[in-house]
């Protein structure tokens, strides 16, 4: 570079002193700096980013601990969000399977039962009707209940034919469902019409509570992340007090002084978000095996839902925003206190 050339009239003499680490750093900085007359803003941002990275690397343990705290604080609501997401998926499946079971009278033959199935399927308030013959029901009962040998002692099949009615009406409108159930119960072929929605309603209530809890915990942990970043940046700005004072006295604006700290906050937030994302992904992977196995045992094709790319992006952006917000609050306050 040109700085190695000796200028005419220069009074210095060789040999040059051996380059020290600070000098090596300077050379690297100058090599990497954006060039061009119009690159002043880019140059400032580049300097600020480099300075921020240097500050974080200089205290690796403190940086790691801060990033870990942010990651834990971000991963908790993310993990709970996954729980809510899966609960929604499960309840969604169940919602569409809400049904009224019609236990037909013993005297109703299979042919009459199938005829009734046809008639009901044509009604506008019914989506579909499934027929389970008494024989099918017995076999299912035998395989699931483990009372197969006890059933063998019975002379005849005590189970009736069953029609499973899937209503078209809003699943949350219990009044409408109850009206339909009563209507079906009044049919002469029907012994018992059963609508069991209570457990579904309870599940919806639990999910609602879970959802609100996640929102509250997320809000709480958001403040925690802002406080962690703000406190870290406050300590950092105190460590760089001398440098800040020099900068201010030679004409640095508040924005110039603030910029490296904002980049530090952004880096903390990004690293925390990235680590949180990794933690949640690993936890999802770790849990997906047992959950999928459990679903299989219940004859379900349900699969554990993890974070999709939108969730991942949200986590990273949240980390960045919280890092930025925390550092902005801390360094702005510090500059106000400095009064230079």
């Amino acid at each position: 570079m040109s700085r190695r050339r000796r200028r005419p009239g220069a009074t210095f003499v060789s040999p040059r002193p051996r380059a020290e680490p600070a000098a090596r750093k300077d050379r690297r900085n100058r090599r990497q700096a954006p060039r061009g007359r119009g690159g002043s803003i880019a140059r400032h941002h580049w300097q600020a980013l480099r300075s921020a990275m240097h500050r974080l690397v200089k205290t690796p343990l403190a940086t790691l601990m801060t990033v870990m705290v942010i990651a834990v604080a971000l991963s908790l609501p993310a993990a709970l969000q996954i729980v809510v997401k899966n609960a929604h998926a499960v309840s969604g499946n169940l919602e569409h399977k809400a049904q009224i079971s019609l236990f037909l009278r013993q005297r109703v033959t299979e042919g009459q039962a199938r005829e009734l199935q046809q008639q009901l399927a044509e009604r506008s308030e019914i989506v579909a009707v499934e027929f389970i013959s008494r024989q099918q029901a017995l076999e299912e009962f035998r395989s699931l209940s483990e009372f197969g040998s006890a059933l063998d002692t019975l002379g005849e099949n005590p189970l009736p034919h069953v029609l499973l009615v899937y209503p078209r009406v809003d699943q949350h409108d219990t009044e409408q469902l109850e009206t339909l159930r009563a209507d079906l119960a009044a049919l002469p072929q029907v012994e018992l019409a059963q609508l069991d929605l209570a457990w579904l309603q309870r599940l919806f209530a639990i999910i609602e509570i879970l959802q609100r809890s996640v929102a509250f915990i997320s809000l709480f942990l958001t403040f925690a992340v802002i406080l962690v970043v703000a406190n870290t940046i406050r300590l950092m700005s105190q460590n760089y007090r001398e440098e800040i004072e020099v900068f201010k006295l030679v004409g640095a604006s508040d924005a110039y002084v603030r910029r490296p700290f904002l980049y530090s906050g952004l880096l903390y937030g990004f690293a925390g978000g990235l680590l949180a994302l990794l933690m949640v992904l690993l936890a999802t992977l770790w849990l997906s095996g047992p959950v999928n196995e459990l679903a299989r045992l219940y004859h379900s094709d349900y699969r554990l839902q993890g974070l999709d790319w939108r969730d991942g992006l949200t986590l990273l952006v949240t980390g960045l925003l919280l890092g930025f917000g925390g550092s902005w609050a801390a360094v702005s306050r510090y500059l106000r206190e400095l009064q230079l």
Binding site: S2, R3, E20, A22, A23, K25, D26, N29, R30, A33, R35, G36, R37, G39, S40, I41, R43, H44, Q47, V246, F247, V250, G251, A252, Y256
Partner: peptide, 19 residues
């Protein structure tokens, strides 16, 4: 920072090109 970098601080703040 080095002697060079200490001297360069006001110019860096002013956004002076590297050369």
């Amino acid at each position: 920072r080095s002697v060079y970098e200490n001297t360069a601080v006001p110019l860096r703040i002013a956004g002076c090109p590297e050369a």
